[in-house]
Design a protein around this nucleic acid. Structure first.
Lengths: 100, 100
DNA sequence: CCAGTAAATTAGCAACCGCTTATATTTTGA
DNA sequence: TCAAAATATAAGCGGTTGCTAATTTACTGG
């Protein structure tokens, strides 16, 4: 009859997993700090403002769920948003929740 | 320097609360069943496929977080997505996660 | 090599989540 | 007014989450 917004249960599960990964204040803030840029862990720690361990654990969650990609350069690890879709999603969040 | 995607911590917190509310398979499926329509609880139960109690509790979460609105007609309660922003968000989820 | 810095990992625990089961509330129709 | 239907609420529990503190791993420059 009517066209469903999301058809398959499998898609719904995958979507909810991805959404869940970003549905946390620190993780969302990490994504906002990253934006389209590539940022080192220590700079993320400085910008977001919690312990290095805490940030590292949240980065691991985002990395394991496929939200973030990493590049290692010498002593440091740089994180970036893995694909344009996720970046688009974060941008949409701004449009939805931050319009004045 | 660079323009942040979401500026204020307050916005980030609010956004993460709203996202968290929909970051659950059953709740996301409820939102997909609703779409732009208004649907009774029993029809949601039938479409989503779990117990009435379970659906009712998830509906309460979405209602309390301001995601859904309700209308009572006789014996039944009808739910709908409360505002265009949320509907837009669900539509974006489809675009992001269900493109083939 | 080695001391120092960056990042990741582990353990532990308090708080929260999500389900089931049972019960309560509201409204209808006979 | 009463039984039945539709929805909501409450209690209880097992599992998960998210933090802190402590330790470990990886890499660097000297």
């Amino acid at each position: 009859m009517s066209k469903k917004l999301i058809d398959r249960d499998e898609d719904i599960l995958q979507a909810s997993l991805a959404i869940k990964a970003i549905a946390h204040p620190l993780r969302l803030k990490i994504l906002c700090v990253l934006g389209a840029k590539e940022v080192s862990v220590q700079d993320i720690v400085a910008d977001v403002g919690t312990t290095q361990s805490n940030i590292s654990q949240h980065l691991a969650i985002l990395r394991d769920k496929g939200v973030l990609s990493t590049r290692k350069d010498a002593n440091r690890v740089y994180y970036r948003i893995g694909n344009p879709r996720t970046l688009k999603l974060v941008e949409m969040m701004r449009d939805l929740f931050c319009t004045t």
